[in-house]
């Protein structure tokens, strides 16, 4: 390890709702190295979503700096931010967020379309990303024809198809049963072993146990940041179920 992918320096986020000032994040400094697998935990309102939005270039901090692969991205314009999201970040959401009435492979192609990849390369890359999550045979299915777990795997394929610097997953197992959750975690572990850097929000300790590092937020601050002593193996856990 060594190369730092994500580095925040004392970032704060203040929302003003009329008279009220809400400090969503208070001077959070955090670094994530390449190849890390971080679980961000905390109750709702703890600031973890705000933190993820800033990391994902969907939001900018009120103060502090955020460096993505050493680059200060917070001063970027809207379209430059969109490009960062496209090239360097892969999102996986709790609700899968696939486009309806669109086949799996077309969903996976989306980031490539917005990344202006030549049409001839898109299909090939999308199919290999689907193969990586074990869905090569479901490429033509629309989200309606896929189970929740399969939809989430399509979403993961979509997140990684552009070979981003980090994959940001926002409660990726929140809508799934425990068996499927473990299966999804197995995929994340596999991607992580292949070199992907993953930051994942979860509030389930048993899911966090599959990661390498747990960061806990409370009231806009990081209250603990501990490496996982013995990372659970999702593949084995699945075998026991």
């Amino acid at each position: 390890m060594g190369e730092i992918v994500v580095r925040t320096e004392e970032i704060s986020k203040v929302y003003s709702m009329g008279e009220q000032r809400v400090d969503a994040l208070k001077r959070v400094s955090l670094s994530v190295e390449k190849g890390d697998f971080v679980a961000i935990m905390g109750a709702s309102g703890s600031g973890k979503s705000t933190f993820m939005n800033i990391i994902g270039c969907l939001d900018v901090p009120t103060s502090g700096t955020y460096l993505l692969e050493g680059e200060n991205v917070q001063g970027f314009s809207g379209s430059a931010q969109a490009e960062v999201r496209n090239k360097k970040i892969g999102f996986v959401f709790q609700g899968f967020n696939l486009l309806a009435r669109t086949s799996a492979v077309e969903n996976v192609e989306l980031p490539l379309i917005y990344g202006r990849f030549p049409a001839s390369l898109r299909r090939e890359k999308a199919l290999s990303a689907l193969a990586l999550v074990g869905l090569a045979d479901r490429a033509g299915h629309t989200s309606k024809q896929l189970s929740g777990g399969q939809q989430q795997r399509v979403a993961i394929a979509r997140a990684l198809v552009n070979e981003p610097a980090i994959i940001l997953a926002d409660e990726p197992t929140g809508n799934l049963d425990s068996i499927t959750s473990v299966e999804i975690m197995a995929i994340f572990q596999k991607l992580n072993r292949q070199g992907s850097t993953i930051i994942m929000v979860t509030h389930e300790p048993e899911i966090a146990a599959f990661t390498k590092r747990n960061v806990v937020f409370r009231d806009g601050r990081v209250i603990s940041d501990t490496p996982v002593a013995r990372q659970a193996d999702a593949e084995q856990a699945r075998g026991r179920m």
Binding site: G56, S79, R85, N162
Partner: peptide, 14 residues
């Protein structure tokens, strides 16, 4: 859908 497209990298003009 617009949110998804934006998160994935669609620009405003897209």
């Amino acid at each position: 859908e617009i949110g998804i497209r934006m998160a994935i990298g669609a620009k405003k003009q897209d």
